[in-house]
């Protein structure tokens, strides 16, 4: 167990460092005048020059990356022309655009994204796994064909269509809920949940489709195994065979898919965030990429990478809990 954790942490650090190098290189070779974009369209050449100097844009790639690493480990002081700002470790730098510390920026956006994705995950697991189990059980019957049709539609529908429809119907026509608006959990948990209900649903509906299909396929595979035959031959009821024996065996790929989807949804639910006006990581990232705000992009990408890595480690732990034959290594 300790060995497993140590290896996982080391692996995560290496992965994240590699990601940051790649982002640095990509941005270094990206065409376009970063200083000009940062300064704005009405800046004079002299001002642009000054910005370039402040941002160390003239330095070679390795020097800038070294600065970044130093900030990460030891913290760094930034002069913003008039004053000096201290950014303590782990420092991800200052935003080119706002001079705000990237860490602070992330800490502001992260709760929004996590609120969205956690809630949606619970829903997509219930909906997806439930549908998958049901359609495997009712294989070849009307129920299954109906469910297959619905999940296929779910896979094929873009999130903004579902989200918009939900908003128009629930908030506009029926007026069951106010139009969503993010309320922090710490401020008012009840309002937090009510406001996030529609974003959760629309994100979950899309994701649930993939889980339903995977669960169904995996269930059918497990149901064909010999030990299922054993319990049927011993008069164990179908509900127990499905729920106790087949489902448990079918869960491994579902756990794996969930780890990936959770990790990537933290930074990738841009459409849902935009549609419902949630100020999350995804939106911020897209904006930062547009204005070539390198420190913000690197910071966000690292946070997303962190969640992907952690989600996968949790998945491996769950495997080992579910199946004693799995040795953590």
């Amino acid at each position: 167990m300790t060995g497993f954790l140590a290896r996982r942490v080391l692996g995560a650090v290496i992965t994240l460092l590699a990601i940051s190098v790649i982002v640095y290189v990509v941005f270094y070779v990206t065409p376009g005048n970063v200083a000009q974009i940062t300064c704005g369209p009405r800046c004079s050449p002299a001002q642009v020059q000054q910005v370039a100097g402040q941002l160390h844009l003239g330095d070679p790639l390795y020097a800038r990356y070294w600065d970044f690493l130093q900030g990460l480990v030891a913290g760094q002081d930034y002069s913003t022309g008039t004053s000096v700002q201290h950014c303590s470790a782990p420092c991800l730098g200052l935003s080119y655009q706002s001079d705000q510390q990237v860490t602070a920026l992330i800490l502001a956006k992260l709760p929004v994204s996590l609120s969205l994705v956690f809630g949606a995950m619970v829903l997509w697991l219930i909906l997806g796994v439930g549908t998958g189990v049901l359609s495997a059980w009712r294989r070849g019957r009307l129920t299954e064909r109906l469910l297959t049709g619905i999940t296929l539609a779910g896979v094929a529908t873009p999130v903004f269509v579902i989200g918009l429809l939900l908003m128009i119907v629930v908030c506009g026509q029926l007026q069951l809920l106010p139009f969503p608006q993010y309320v922090a959990f710490t401020d008012d948990p009840e309002q937090w949940a009510w406001n996030l209900l529609l974003p959760w649903l629309s994100l979950a509906l899309i994701e649930a489709a993939a889980f339903a299909r995977l669960t169904r396929a995996s269930m059918l595979e497990t149901l064909a195994e010999d030990h299922i035959r054993t319990f049927r031959a011993y008069g164990v009821g179908e509900r127990s065979v499905i729920g106790r024996h087949a489902l448990r065996g079918a869960l491994a790929p579902v756990i794996a898919l969930n780890a990936n989807n959770f990790g990537s949804a933290v930074g990738g639910a841009v459409l849902t965030e935009t549609l419902f006006g949630l100020p999350g990581i995804g939106q911020e990232l897209v904006h930062a990429v547009k204005v070539v705000d390198l420190p913000v992009v690197v910071g966000m990408v690292l946070v997303i990478g962190f969640f992907v890595v952690v989600a996968n480690a949790v998945a491996d732990l769950l495997y080992a809990v579910a199946d004693r034959r799995v040795v953590l290594a």
Binding site: E225, H227, F231, H245, G249, D323, R324, R325
Partner: peptide, 9 residues
Amino acid sequence: DPLSSLDPY
């Protein structure tokens, strides 16, 4: 096959 005939979990 007694291995596959019992639930591994």
